[in-house]
Design a protein around this nucleic acid. Structure first.
Length: 481
RNA sequence: GGCCCGUUGGUCAAGUGGUUAAGACACGGCCCUUUCACGGCUGUAACAGGGGUUCGAGUCCCCUACGGGUCACCA
């Protein structure tokens, strides 16, 4: 019987969430859900200076928009709380852990000032800075005296000699020489733990079984193992996943590179389901060739075995395509209600308009432009009447338009429907020895003033109604004459 | 620069020693009783390079190149 899977998304409240962050959250969430586990939200606010007010709310909001719901967290509580590190710090959990490490000889006090650290000889050739263990030689008495005098201090991890290996579920075993590792700070002089330390302490305290994180943490992973071993704690399974990169720079997706927030994307008209579907497919592929997944399906089908090892680039063109697909596949009723706001000002059958527009848009905001000609005939160039493929031009159009207008004028308002209109115009074309398109193209242009409309000529006739249609046809004839 | 990781078409990616090397986006062509679109069909396009191992290598090993990551009292 294996333990319940517990995963966490642990953001620091330093701003909005972009696709990369959302992907990180989604990975943790899906791993938990695919195994009937628990997904936890933990806020890592150990850097007081970087904290941005309101950022936690943005995180809640973003997760909510995407449908990534946490089972435990600051707002919903849970058995492993508190879920905010600044609150956990108040319980003394980090300091206690650090002290325990000192007792075990795996950490030590350091009183070096920032100034002294600055003067540490940089390795000229490599330009790297490593702590020189100046304070490691302090005697117990010296330490106690400094502590008693209230000297500021940090606590550093004592990296032993040798090599350290750890096993990643995706990348396999990775070994580094401990000489590569710095005696990193565990507790900062302001009493807060560093990210690396708080992470280990909390993951253990919260019973986290699987950690999914980006490969940017791959090289610090051995230090975690050292910590776990020093404590004698069970090491969770680590799954380092490839990063999400920017299309133009090819570098890690980041705020600095101007990555849009999830909220921005939604405001631009991207559907949350499409965004989730799209990012789920970044760096992961399902067992079959399916490309469309609801969150529920992702929860069922997500598997570590489908994860890729190489980074992926965000292709906004594909996201746009996916968004359009989501509109096309959307339940018509839902589409109708979503598009209602954009259809409001059009004095036509809204359900009909929605149905026309549904398979033709990427964003709802495209609707007004798609339909604006319905409200008022735009001033258009008669060059529109020329279409090589339809074998028509201004002269042919005029020749077709005049009898067409006359014919249509003879149709009563009661008989004014698409089927009848189509039959009539088709009949006219046959009578005149013309191709259907040689009649229908000019009619559509005259009705719309556009080369592209969301429907055909006779559908337009029906939509506009008899009077408006006949008026527009006359206008077209005038323009051509 | 040290260390770590990666490298299949422009992009997302399947592929776990024997395949005509999938599929999707994008792009081109054709078809679709009326445009654009949708849809259908179809085309161009890839195993970074070099050495091994093997009867056989995109798949295993080594080297090189390129890319990324990491080396903070940031997370």
């Amino acid at each position: 019987m294996s333990k319940t899977v517990r995963t966490r998304y642990a953001p620091s409240p330093t701003g909005y969430m972009h696709i990369g962050n959302a992907k990180a959250a989604l990975n943790e969430y899906l791993l938990a859900k695919s195994q009937g586990g628990v997904f936890i939200l933990r806020i890592e606010d150990t850097d007081q200076k970087r904290e941005i007010p309101g950022a936690v709310e943005v995180i809640y909001d973003t997760l909510n928009i995407l449908g990534i719901s946490h089972d435990e967290g600051p707002d919903v509580g849970g058995p492993a709380g508190p879920y905010v590190q600044s609150q956990r710090k108040a319980t003394g959990i980090y300091m206690d852990a650090a002290l325990e490490l000192i007792k075990k000889g795996a950490a030590y006090y350091c009183f070096c000032s920032k100034e002294r650290l600055e003067t540490l000889t940089r390795d000229g050739a490599h330009d790297i800075l490593r702590y020189d263990r100046h304070c490691l030689s302090l005697t117990k008495e010296e330490i106690n005296a400094k502590l008693a005098a209230g000297e500021p201090f940090v606590i550093r991890q004592l990296i032993p000699e040798g090599k350290t290996s750890f096993t990643d579920e995706l990348f396999g075993e990775i070994t580094v020489d401990n000489s590569e590792l710095d005696d990193q700070i565990l507790m900062k002089s302001d009493g807060f733990p560093t990210y690396n330390f708080a992470n280990v302490v909390d993951d253990n305290a919260m019973g986290i079984t699987h950690v999914v994180r980006g490969t940017e943490y791959l090289s610090s992973a051995p230090k975690y193992n050292l910590l776990y071993n020093a404590f004698g704690w069970d090491i969770p399974k680590y799954i380092h996943v490839p990063m999400i990169c920017d299309e133009v720079t090819g570098k890690k997706y980041s705020k600095r590179l101007g990555a849009p927030s999830i909220q921005d994307l939604v405001a631009q008209g991207y559907l949350p389901e499409a965004i989730v579907n799209f990012i789920a497919l970044l760096g992961w592929s399902p067992a079959d060739n399916n490309e469309f997944f609801t969150m529920k399906e992702l929860e069922e089908q997500f598997a570590v075995s489908g994860l890729s090892k190489s980074p992926s680039i965000v292709d906004m063109t594909k996201l746009r395509w996916m968004n359009a697909e989501y509109f096309k596949r959307m339940d018509p009723e839902r589409f109708y209600s979503m598009s209602a706001a954009y259809l409001e000002t059009f004095p036509f059958d809204k359900a009909k308009l929605a149905a026309m527009v549904q398979p033709r848009i990427t964003f709802l905001s495209e609707i007004p432009e798609l339909l604006d000609f319905l409200k008022a005939l735009p001033d258009y160039d008669i060059a529109l009447y020329e279409n090589k493929k339809q074998k028509t031009d201004a002269a042919v159009s005029l020749k077709a338009l005049e009898p067409a207008a006359e014919l249509l004028a003879g149709i009563s308002p009661e008989g004014w429907n698409n089927d009848a209109l189509y039959a009539a115009l088709q009949g006219l074309a046959a009578e005149m020895g013309m191709k259907n398109s040689q009649v229908l193209w000019p009619v559509r242009v005259a009705l719309s003033g556009k080369a592209a409309t969301p429907c055909g000529a006779t559908e337009l006739l029906e939509l506009l109604g008899r009077d408006a249609s006949l008026a527009r046809l006359d206008d077209g004839i005038k323009r051509l004459s």
